[in-house]
Design a protein around this nucleic acid. Structure first.
Length: 292
DNA sequence: CACTTGACCTGTCCGC
DNA sequence: TGCGGACAGGTCAAGT
């Protein structure tokens, strides 16, 4: 669920809220959520200062001045929430937030900074993780080494998209869009939304796509991702940003979670099917399967 | 080798 | 009300 726009929103929040802060202590409940040893945490995290934050695909990198970086992947239900003098939870805090008080029962890691502020890593399903790695090794970690380009990179063009998709001509377009090695950051929500925008059926084989399809898909993907960032991302179930607030993109989504409602383009009822093992939303009239 | 399916988890919702 | 099962969907390992 946290896809590119959600992780970008968290990134923007962390940039403002924790950059320059120094770690005082760290506690965690299950090793799976934070697999480093106590020794590594003591040596490379405690008393280290946050010097930079990056997003790469759906992952966050928090760079420390100890030559280590903290990598965070939220997977399905992860949250990274800040609490400090600017932001408090509970105690009658008026809330567009999903959160009442922290920590809660899904809190896996609590990081405390020297100014008393805290960063909570919550993860209901425990698929997500955060982990310290030497900064110099990050680019060679398998996850990052094979990561495709960011679709919002200024240098990324429709020709790049076409060239990368065309390495997978036998596959369906939706499966390929979800492959982080082809393009990074796209998940189930924005795959469905961008394919609707480009009027391409998710099951269409890449080999059946024409030049105009690549151009349309590129334009659609970029605009959907940008629009969602403006809206603070999508809150489907439990996504919140670094301030604990929900995103608003789903209010203006065209097909995702809109089954039974009219297609904004042609009025036909949006359907939900199961495709490539996932819930897939589309307009059966605007998005026909094309064959080569 | 390319692609698809199952496992990892927990909470929610639906039907009986 | 309680219970079993389907479902949610990111990534990697295992299977076809």
């Amino acid at each position: 669920m946290p896809e590119l726009p959600e992780v970008e929103t968290i990134y923007l929040g962390l940039e403002r809220l924790i950059k320059g802060k120094r770690f005082e202590s760290v506690t965690f409940d299950v090793q799976k959520s934070f697999p480093n040893s106590y020794n590594e945490v003591d040596q490379f995290m405690i008393n280290a200062t946050v010097i930079g934050i990056q997003r790469r695909g759906k992952a966050l990198l928090i760079e420390l001045n100890s030559n280590y970086s903290l990598i965070v992947h939220l997977r399905m239900t992860g949250q990274l929430v800040y609490e400090g003098k600017e932001i408090r939870f509970g105690g009658g805090h008026p809330s567009s937030s999903l959160l009442n008080s922290l920590p809660d029962k899904s809190t896996r890691v609590v990081v405390t900074f020297t100014d008393g502020s805290k960063l909570y890593f919550n993860d209901q399903r425990k698929f997500g993780w955060m982990r310290l790695y030497p900064t110099s090794q990050i680019n060679s970690l398998p996850f990052f080494a094979k990561l495709g380009p960011d679709p919002l990179d200024n240098l990324f063009t429709w020709q790049d998209l076409r060239q990368r998709l065309q390495k997978r001509t036998q596959s369906s377009i939706k499966s390929v869009l979800l492959d982080q090695g082809v393009v990074s950051g796209v998940g189930n929500i924005y795959a469905d939304e961008s394919l609707w925008g480009a009027q391409i059926h998710p099951a269409t084989k890449v080999q059946a796509l024409k030049i105009r399809d690549y151009k349309a898909l590129y334009a659609s993907l970029v605009s959907v991702l940008r629009l969602s960032i403006e809206k603070g991302g999508s809150t489907d179930r439990n996504y919140v940003n670094a301030e604990g607030k929900k995103g608003n993109y789903l209010e203006i989504a065209k097909v995702f979670r809109k089954e039974g409602q009219p297609c904004p383009r042609c009025g036909t009822e949006i359907i939900k099917i199961r495709f490539a093992g996932r819930g897939t939303h589309l307009c059966p009239r605007c998005q026909k399967v094309k064959t080569a």
